[in-house]
Amino acid sequence: ERELEKVMKDFVAQRYNLLLCSTIIETGIDVPTANTIVMARADKFGLAQLHQLRGRVGRSHHQAYAYLMVPDIEGLTKQASQRLEAIQQMEELGSGFYLAMHDLEIRGTGEVLGENQSGNMMEIGFQLYNEMLNEAVSSLKAGREPDLLSPLNVSTEINLHAPALLPSDYCGDVHLRLSFYKKLATAKTTDQIDALLEEIVDRFGKLPAQAQTLIDVHRLRVIAKPYGVVKVDAAPTLINITFKKDPPIDAIAIMHLIQKNKHIKLAGNDKLRIERELKEPKDRAQMVRDVLRSLGQPTTETAPA
């Protein structure tokens, strides 16, 4: 209290425009002349409250200040520290959504299919929680019992032995780059990837080599997955395509492929070995696509009744 009183006196001496009130102002009261807010015991407020209270100042053209007062930083609880750290980091315009996500992960979401208002989502994260729920619902709709022991959304690993990224000098906003990475990683069809490619080129211009490789990696991932491919390792002189056990492709098609192409060999029961020198990553990706398409359409598994 003494420290707060001293801060208040300093503000008065410097003719700051202070607003003395309770948390009622978080409901949306607009006081444009107020440019400084001091929150006593900020560790007791929720993240949404802190965000709303901070937004009560700086509503005009004057520089605004928000001071979060706590009795002892070392004595804060883990969640209180996380809330205060999040509110300090998220100070840019439009950061409300990211604060909401932080709040959701700190508190834990409620049960989607139950009555509890809090839960343990923070143990696995919001994205994985949604994926697990979608997988279970899809299995039940298809008449299958969800397999809780099987890996969730096992992705096909693609390695073209070349940098695959959006360079910072091409797309400067780190949050935007992460957003595109996530959209590409969750794309399930080549049409979705083509739409993202069109958006990226429209916003930032012609793709540099690293970005083109990134697009090739995800397009190849989408094409290879229906064939039961778990890994593609495409080096400049050697390409290995590894299939899962009992892939949904015709074994006779594989034998015909090997007989017609001397540079393609069968390495074990689950791997195709392509011996050809291809320096460019896009050429290696195209080679893999051509090999997979030559195997015909993958068979589809029939769900049990």
Rank of each mutant, 00 (worst) to 15 (best):
L20Y: 05
Q117C: 09
K183H: 05
G114H: 10
M132H: 10
Y181C: 06
R15I: 01
T299E: 05
D191T: 14
K279H: 03
G125E: 13
M287G: 00
E3N: 07
M101K: 13
L214M: 10
K182T: 14
E3G: 12
S60N: 15
Q297W: 02
A48Y: 02
D72E: 13
R15V: 02
A164G: 10
G172H: 10
H51G: 03
G46F: 06
I37D: 03
Q14D: 14
S118M: 11
M132T: 13
L165I: 11
D191C: 03
V70K: 09
A80V: 11
L18Q: 08
A100N: 08
G110K: 12
E111Q: 11
I24D: 05
N116Y: 05
K271V: 04
A211E: 04
K279R: 09
A64G: 10
S22H: 00
R15W: 03
V38W: 04
Q127V: 05
A13M: 08
I264L: 00
T23M: 02
A234V: 01
R203V: 00
L278T: 01
P71T: 08
I258Y: 06
R219L: 03
E301L: 08
R41G: 10
I249M: 01
R221Y: 13
A253H: 05
A86F: 09
G228V: 01
V230A: 01
R177I: 00
V229R: 04
H161D: 08
R203A: 11
Y98F: 14
V222P: 14
L196F: 12
A251M: 03
I254K: 08
A40I: 02
P151R: 01
L292E: 06
C21K: 11
S150A: 15
E280D: 07
R2T: 02
K206V: 07
D169R: 14
V12K: 12
N269T: 06
E92F: 15
D246P: 07
M101T: 06
R107C: 04
P298Q: 06
L50Y: 04
T190P: 06
N269L: 05
G110P: 02
L166Y: 07
T300L: 09
P298S: 01
E3M: 02
H218Q: 09
T36Q: 06
G75P: 03
A253T: 01
I274D: 01
D103N: 15
L184W: 07
L266H: 04
K182L: 06
E301R: 15
T237Y: 04
D194T: 12
A164L: 02
D246E: 15
R177C: 00
L68K: 07
P247I: 00
P146I: 00
T33S: 11
I264V: 02
Q49T: 10
L197R: 14
Y67I: 12
H102R: 13
R273N: 11
Q192V: 03
K260N: 02
T156S: 13
D270R: 11
A40M: 02
I200Y: 14
L238S: 00
L176W: 01
I239G: 01
V38Y: 08
N269I: 00
G114Y: 09
V57M: 07
A305I: 09
R293H: 11
A164S: 12
R177T: 04
